[in-house]
């Protein structure tokens, strides 16, 4: 993928992240009292609600895509050899996918797993 296209994606994910992170922060103390926001039953109800669960999953993907691409950009700015570029591109993509998979596992298990 061309770097110019990746930068467009970086800006799009930034705009989505601003909206979603703002909502996420407001849910933790402003729209919902902070003490209540962390209660087990409250968190469980958020994950089990389709809209809230989907928003958390989208937030996870958007923030990780933006964050790991940002890290990739910084590392590519640092050094510019062909080997380094290839290594950084692959490692950033792999790390983003692994972290997304782990976070998605939490969302899926929280929404569908048996409560204990």
């Amino acid at each position: 993928m061309r770097e110019s296209t990746i930068m467009q994606i970086q800006y799009v994910t930034a705009v989505f992240a601003i909206g979603l992170v703002t909502l996420h922060l407001l849910m933790q103390g402003v729209l919902v009292p902070y003490g209540d926001a962390l209660m087990f039953q409250k968190v469980l109800s958020l994950y089990k609600d389709a809209v809230n669960g989907a928003l958390l999953e989208i937030l996870l993907i958007v923030v990780l895509a933006h964050g790991f691409n940002g890290l990739r950009i910084i590392l590519l700015e640092w050094r510019q050899t062909a080997g380094w570029t290839k290594g950084v591109n692959r490692t950033a993509l792999f790390a983003a996918l692994v972290t997304m998979a782990y976070g998605t596992r939490t969302v899926i298990l929280a929404a569908t797993g048996q409560v204990s």
Binding site: F40, Y47, Y102, G103, L109, G113, Q114, V115, S116
Partner: peptide
């Protein structure tokens, strides 16, 4: 937050 489902080896919401 993965500890909401018991951490890396959890299987579901775990209070």
């Amino acid at each position: 937050t993965s500890f909401f489902v018991g951490g890396p080896f959890g299987a579901g919401p775990n209070s």
